[in-house]
Every structure is written in C-alpha cells, then in structure tokens.
Design a protein around this nucleic acid. Structure first.
Ligand SMILES: [Zn+2]
Ligand SMILES: [Zn+2]
Ligand SMILES: [Zn+2]
Ligand SMILES: [Zn+2]
Lengths: 142, 142
DNA sequence: CTGATTTTGAAAATCATTATCAATTAGGTA
DNA sequence: TACCTAATTGATAATGATTTTCAAAATCAG
C-alpha cells in the first residue's frame, strides 16, 4: 500500500547557520520569474559567477521550502520546482510555454477542499491545486 | 526557463495488440484499492505468480493512462502512481495513512479553474487538484 | 580565539524511469 | 493452417534527478 507522508516536515529543527550559499540561493530564487529546478538554479548561479555546489543548492531549496520561504511543486515530468512566493497560502497559474507564474488566491477552493474532505470523513486535509495553461503572450500550439 | 509540456500526448497512435501482459496489468490495477506505482504493481504481479517484465508494466500503465483507463498522479515523493478510474473527469481524495481513495466530482473547481485562467488571459487550462487527508478509519497521528 | 557543531561540495550511490535490441508474438492474409 | 510483418516483450544498460558520503571548511557561542 502506498502511504502518503505529510507534505511538510515537522517542527523541532535545529538552528540553521547563515552562509553565503544559502543567501545566494535565496537571492537567485528571487530573480526568477517562474518556477525553477535545483539544477536550473545551480546553472543560473554558475553563470553569474557563483561557485556554489549542486548539492548545496538542493539542500538550500529544500530548506527554504520547509521554512515557507519558497513554494515547491512537481512539474508534470516529475521534476521538483521552486519559486520564491508570498507567505500566505495560495495557488499557481503557470504558463506551459514561457513559465510565467501568477499567484492566485482561491478561498473558494480552500473552502471546497475542506468541505469535501469533511463530507467524506477525512480529517486534516491538505491539497494540491495548480492550473497550467498558455499565457496571453504565448501562442497556443496545435 | 522551465517549459511545461501538455499532459497527454496527441492522437494518431498505432494499433495496440492484445497481450496477456496488458490484460494482467489492467486486471491487477483493478484489484488495487488505491494508487500504485509501476514497481509496486510489478511486485504484486510477481507475488501472484506472473513473470511479466518490469518495463512492460511501465509501458502498460503509461498506455492505460493515455487511453483514459487509468488516472495517474505523482506522489509527494515524485513517484508516478496509477489507479483504475471511472472515465469521466474527476479528482481524488486520498488517505495519507492507508491509501484509501475516493473519486470526487468538483464542478465547482472545474468552473473556478477555467474562470481563473480566462481572467488572467490564459488559454487551454488544465489543472491538478488532489486532496490528501486521513480517512475515518485511520487515527490522525500527532 | 577556540572548540563543538554545522555546512559544504566533489564524487559516489540511489533509484525511478527510459532506451536498447534481439527474440517472441499477435493478427491479418493467402 | 502456414506465413509474414509489424508490434511487443524483457533482460539489461543507460539516463537523469536527487541523496548520501565524509573529509575539509566555516559558523558562532563562550
Ligand atoms: Zn507564456
Ligand atoms: Zn489552497
Ligand atoms: Zn485511511
Ligand atoms: Zn477537474
């Protein structure tokens, strides 16, 4: 049986030290207009002259996501992608062509998710809600 | 820039032949109460005496998903999971503890997704909507 | 400044998934 | 039924993203 673990790890974490690497990742993530993979961000950092290691980028992104400073989602191909986001819970509208990302609030969906879970006797619901499409600047192929 | 490809491949596919392997996968998938990975289903088949190859299970599951006979989603850990599902578009409410899966219709969400995409100038929207929680039979941990 | 502890990073290890490709098989045809 | 040909299979190698290792470097409280 497949068991789904909680999305975010528990609390009780040890103190994190401040390194230029973590700051470089946080900063680089902020310059991205859409979601990026760890590999992509590492490449971007390398291009801008940083000698940060790939494993460190993976670790920093995972930390940022855990601390709520970044949102993460999985591309349809299964790659983990990250993006610097606002603190409040929200969802994303993502252009499949250029990656443009719009943060969307959806009280309607929040309420629906909770109501649906409750109706079926499920407790502590969490949800994954992402919308993909083609932004107005991108010509829909086909 | 990360590019998101369309979720489902185009049409124009060649004729599929009927093999006991495909039928075994379809059948085994039907006996599962929740989502399973290709590896998990291959293990289940092996346990029940089938000598089907792992690559074949991967291929059969991908085909079933393309043909609409199975739904697929990615576990929070990034594994592709499959489940025999009803034909109509729907979403899932999944127990994080036992894997129990409930199919849910969400006209409300369908409409919201389309409306939101349109409002932001996005065309051809597709969406990922899954709800995870603990079913009534499972004691919520913590 | 010092020392305990955390972090880094290059390289190796994992691990799910895909590609290879020779051998087998399904399904149509005579 | 025998045969042909393209589709399918499956053992294995290859891929590719992510994680682990572990010795060296860095952080930071005291
Ligand atoms: Zn776009
Ligand atoms: Zn939400
Ligand atoms: Zn349950
Ligand atoms: Zn839907």
């Amino acid at each position: 049986m497949v068991v789904f673990e909680p999305f975010r790890k528990g609390v009780g974490m040890v103190v994190k030290r401040n390194t230029w690497q973590r700051e470089a990742v946080r900063s680089a993530l902020g310059t991205q207009m859409g979601f990026v993979s760890a590999q992509g961000l590492h490449a971007a950092l390398a291009t801008s002259g940083s000698h940060i290691g790939l494993a460190t980028v993976y670790r920093a992104l995972a930390d940022l996501a855990n601390e709520g400073e970044a949102d993460s989602l999985q591309s349809p191909e299964g790659e983990a992608l990250y993006r610097a986001c606002s603190l409040a819970h929200h969802h994303h509208l993502i252009c499949r062509s250029c990656g443009l990302t719009v943060e969307i609030e959806a009280d309607e969906v929040e309420e629906w998710a909770h109501r649906t879970a409750t109706q079926h006797g499920f407790s502590r619901p969490e949800h994954v809600v992402d919308v993909f499409g083609f932004c107005s600047a991108c010509v829909p192929p086909q």
